[in-house]
Nucleic acid binder design. Sequence first.
RNA 1: GGAAGAGUGGCAGAGCUGGUUUAAUGCACUGGUCUUGAAAACCAGCGUGCGGCAACGUACCGGGGGUUCGAAUCCCUCCUCUUCCGCCA
Length: 426
Amino acid sequence: MLEVSRIRAQKEEIKAALTKRGWTNDRLELLDRAIEADDKRKALQTENDGYLSQRNKLSKEIGNLFKQGKQEEANAAKAQVEEMKTKIAATESQLASCTTDLETVLLDIPNIPHSSVPAGVTEDDNEVAKDWPQDLPILGDEALPHWDLATKYNILDMKLGVKLTGAGFPVFRGKGSRLQRALINFFLDEASKAGYEEIVPPLLVNADSARATGQLPDKEGQMYYVEKDDLYLIPTAEVPVTNIYRGNIVKEQDFPIKLTGYTQCFRREAGSYGADVKGLNRVHQFDKVEIVQFQHPDKSYETLDQMVKHVEGLLQKLELPYRILRLCGGDLSFASALTYDLEVYSAAQKRWLEVSSVSNFETFQSNRLKLRFTDSDGKKRLAHTLNGSALALARIIAALLENNQTKDGIVIPEALRSYTGFDIID
RNA sequence: GGAAGAGUGGCAGAGCUGGUUUAAUGCACUGGUCUUGAAAACCAGCGUGCGGCAACGUACCGGGGGUUCGAAUCCCUCCUCUUCCGCCA
């Protein structure tokens, strides 16, 4: 959520930046509506405070009058307060509806894209920030997609998941399970080495947490919801891990705050069927190691680069061909100011698979989180928040299986062997 | 799940027979005096949001609602914690 003060101060720049998201005048007028609603809110607040002030003053007087035994005067004052209360009730209800209006408008305004974000509408307009320098691997015609490899080596069973739960809930078996566990440990160890504090958070969160990171209200349908307890299954570790600092005021010297968490992630992912979603490409439950940082506004883009480097390092160690995209305005998520997608090439599917998304949210998320720091002048300012997947397991496994298939079996990359305890799946 | 007790500012802890409480006091923290430096002592400052150029006003004592001219204080409800019982990985 953008701050109204920022919309006021930089309205024209913001309008210009939002056109990169494909926004036209009819939507840009939301900015004016936000300012209008805020003006109204301020006026009502001033009015209401005045009434409250009078009420408080009168109430004190009544107390004194009673002590002095001046019953009649006290009763007269009571009548005045009665009048005041009617006014207060009226302005308060206006104030409440006005605040709701403002909030509604603000929730519809996405983050302002960073100056380096290319304009564009679809993923075709994304910019390749770093391409794979070598030739892409070419497998023989006998090469299989991961869903067939999974069956061949009995390491992953989608049909069994259907029996146990439903479509999109994979069941890993044997070496498939161990590969899964190995990757989790590998990713967590790498994050620890890079200075991230490891967190094991709850997998269910309350509505306050879901709201603070922006899942509510806009992405409510994406989350599994436990009605009886009013809790949500997390779609990513970002939600509980980021919320650790909800409402906190940290010291400037605490930056950067670096957290990592492995969790299973749950997504309802309504819609979207077909070849693209086959196998592990899109599932309802998957495993992911997330990295999160809270940073001083002046340093957040440096940090974003470091986080991308970290994820790159993982892909290099796994010996997977990858490229980095800078997302265009149209493909940029609602809350992000700048996002890099890391994609791994699947030689069998002959396409790039998104395995990580690393974003700087600037103050967009911290505004809802109310995550602030005290700067050197003693002023309270919103921190910048960043996060990225490091990494999502399902698609990495898909890519590993496909790219590393040989006639003897699937070869485990060197870096993982001490974790898996085997070097081939056959 | 059942019973009892409790939730106050970074921490500790008063207030809780409704009205100078503008939330006492201590610790911690920040600045200053003193000191070669430090400690101690002393002086001052020290929550957050909103409105206001400011003075200041206003809201917040777990969340929400109510009673009252007036609520940290009384009532209802929800949440959390502690202790005991039950159940259980």
